[in-house]
Structures are given as structure tokens and as C-alpha cells.
Computed example of a mutant assay.
Amino acid sequence: MSDQARGVAAMVGAASIWGLSPIFYKHLSHIPALEVLSHRMIWSLALFLLVLGVQNRLREIWQAVNSFRALAIFMVASVMIAANWALFIWSVQVGQTTQTSLGYYIYPLVAVLIGRIIFGETLSRAQWYAVVLAALAVMLLTYGLGTAPWVALVLAATFGLYGMIKKQLDVGPVVSVTVEVLLLAPLAVILLLQTRHNDAAVFGGDPATFGLLVLSGPLTALPLILFSYAARRLAMATVGLLQYINPTLQFGCAVFLFGEPFGGWHMAAFALIWSALALYSVSRFGQDRARRKASRAAAASGTIV
């Protein structure tokens, strides 16, 4: 298997785990979302530390926070990802997986908009059309349902802001997330100790439930490791396209497994979102192809000289 094929397999694996994770969290609906989040942080931290320890990279954690600025950025990033994880878990538990799917479909377009507003990145005409279609989808759904899809919007916004913050750090994803959950771990432990008396589900009680809570660590760590492996081997346009497996599987879980409502307004809004993503993907592939051609031309020119 070629290096690129291994990268594709890793990315498909990561996106599939993320996309099917609602099935896992649905089985924990009897546990408050903040408790599930706390377990997710603690057990993923344990696994990340183990991985970095085996790789003899634990010192990179300290190196990543060697300045006040870096520590402050990590603290803000940890708040963003904790809010995103907590809202996702809660949404699945209360039957809003359709909205989580919509949120992760919207996220790439939110990221494009953040890039334009914050970093002054240039958008192609097709990308502007994609952003406009996404905005129309949100307005249509708000009108049809009588309320804004706030779960989807907050998920997309927190993940978009998380990416914006992480853009300022030159740290690999495994080390970065290790630092973030390490900063939040004390709060997670305090929350679990305070709620220990609640139906014995925190550190004891039902062995099956406790086993699922421990499993939330690998479920968090494994796709991130796979994503990191894939990102080093694939073009960003390919990674971006394969990431759509995640919300597509979430959508399938919501409609076909959980039986969540999906009426005419949902259908119209999702059609607009899918059209926007098609425009965005075509534009990204075009930009990526043009960039590769320019790089090859520059390399050839340098060789001739």
C-alpha cells in the first residue's frame, strides 16, 4: 500500500469514528453530559500521556507552554474544545444529532469566513457563493422551524474559533490536545468527585457504564492520531473532502438509527448546505491543483537556473 493510500485509509478511519460516535454517546444518555465530558478528558489524557511517553515526547508538553502567551492561547483553546465536546454529547443525548450533523457540515464554510475576516484570506467567487448558500440554509431552517438551529451554529462557531486559535501555535495535534485536556483535567476531577454520590455512576456502580466511560478516552484519542497521520500524507483538499464522511454518518445516525424528525424544512436546508459544500469542494480542489502546478513550475525554473 502506498503512503498516500495509507493516508486515505487513516483519514477515512478517523472520520468514520467521529461520524459513528453518536451511537456511543447515545448509550450514555443516562449520565449527565458534563460527567461524560469529564471522563472523556481524563481517560483521553491518560492515553495521550501514554502515547507520548512511549514515543519519548513528554518533554514536548512543557516546551509547548514555555511562554505566557502560549499558555493563554492553550487555555482559550481548551475552553473552546470543551464547549464543543460538551454541546455535542448533550445534543446526542437529547435527540439533536441532526443539528450536530448540520453543524459539522457548516464548519468548513465558517472556517472560510473566519479566514477572510480575521486573516484577510482571499475567497474565490465560488467560495463566496458557498457561504451565501449556507447562510440561506440557516435562515430557511430558522423560518421553517420557528427557531434558529443554535446547536449547529454554536458547534460550527466553537470549532471554527478553536481552529483559528490553534493556527497561532506551531505544535502537533497530539501534543496540543494533550496540553488542552491537561489544563482541564483538574476541573474534570473536581466535577466527578462532587457528583460521586449521584447513582454511583462516576467511578463505580454499573460495570458496563463505567467501561463505556473509560472507552471515551480511546474514542477521543484514536481518531485524532489517525487524523494527524493522514494530514502529513495528504493534500489539504483531500483531507477536507474526506472529513465530510463525519457529518454524513452523523446524519445517517440521526435519521435512520435514532428516528429524529427530518421534514421538508430540514430537507430544503440540507440541500442548500450540500450544494454549498459541492461548490466549496470544487473550488478547493481547483486552488490546490493550481498551487501544485505553481510549485512544480517554480521548482523546474530553479532547476534550469
Rank of each mutant, 00 (worst) to 15 (best):
M11G: 03
G13P: 05
S21E: 02
H30N: 11
H39F: 05
A46F: 15
L49I: 11
L50V: 14
Q55T: 08
E60A: 13
W62I: 05
A64L: 06
M80Y: 10
A82C: 13
N84F: 00
W85H: 04
F88E: 04
T100M: 07
G103R: 00
P108C: 09
V112T: 14
G115P: 08
I117Y: 07
T122R: 15
W128P: 00
V132K: 00
A134C: 13
L141W: 09
T142A: 09
A148P: 03
W150H: 01
L153P: 01
V154I: 15
F159S: 02
L161S: 06
I165F: 15
K167D: 10
L169Y: 05
S176I: 02
L183K: 02
V189H: 03
I190G: 02
L193C: 11
T195V: 06
V202F: 12
F203E: 01
G204F: 11
T209M: 12
F210K: 01
G211V: 05
V214R: 02
T220P: 03
L222E: 01
F227M: 10
S228P: 04
A235I: 05
A237C: 09
T238E: 13
L257Y: 14
F258K: 07
A271G: 12
L272R: 00
Y280L: 09
Y280V: 03
V282H: 11
R284A: 13
F285Y: 15
R296Q: 15
A299R: 14
